[in-house]
């Protein structure tokens, strides 16, 4: 009986010992020394990161971002300047072109006016010349007709006097001859 009790007690003690051993060896529960080192290391890392390690990095990144932004802005300004310069140049070009066109137009219109004036003058001159010539022709024609009339009258009167052997009234014969000449002139 006593032996049984002793055995049971021993078994119980072994169980308890095993249980405590397994509890101490529980793979889930954190152990105090690892927690201590993890806490020390992480707090050290955090402090270093906050005060020593991160500031230069962020500063440099900010500086680079600023540089990039500045460069972008400079590029944009240069682009705007280029665009404005281009538009200026184009405006100047357009002005020069319109000026040239104006000059050409002016020259053309001036030339036209000049030519028109000259043509008018020449026309007028030609017209006077033609009128003079026409007047001359007409005068010559009149003169010629008068000469013709008088000579034909003379011939006709002489011939008639020779035929009738007596002087003929010259005035009445002149009217006749003139009638004839004018008729023959109109026939021609």
């Amino acid at each position: 009986m006593l032996a049984l009790v002793r055995v049971l007690a021993e078994a119980a003690a072994t169980d308890v010992q095993q249980a405590t051993e397994t509890a101490a060896k529980n793979p889930i529960l954190p152990t105090i020394n690892e927690m201590f080192w993890a806490a020390v290391v992480f707090l050290l890392l955090w402090a270093l990161m906050k005060f020593v390690l991160l500031p230069p990095i962020t500063k440099l990144m900010a500086a680079r971002a600023d540089t990039v932004r500045g460069d972008l802005q400079a590029a944009e300004a240069a682009e705007a300047q280029r665009v404005s310069r281009l538009s200026d140049y184009e405006a100047g070009l357009a002005g020069a072109r319109s000026e040239a066109i104006g000059i050409i137009e002016q020259a053309r219109s001036e030339g036209d006016a000049e030519r028109r004036v000259q043509i008018t003058a020449a026309d007028a001159e030609v017209a006077t010349l033609r009128a003079d010539a026409a007047a001359e022709i007409a005068a010559a024609k009149v003169r010629a007709r008068a000469e013709l009339t008088s000579s034909i009258t003379d011939i006709a009167v002489g011939a008639a006097e020779a035929v009738v052997q007596k002087p003929i009234d010259r005035a009445s014969q002149t009217a006749l001859v003139e009638d004839y000449v004018s008729r023959s002139g109109s026939q021609n």
Binding site: A3, L4, V7, L8, A11, T14, D15
Partner: peptide, 11 residues
């Protein structure tokens, strides 16, 4: 024998 039985039982 009791001891052996007990050990066997625990095992």
């Amino acid at each position: 024998s009791i001891l052996a039985q007990a050990a066997a039982a625990t095992a």
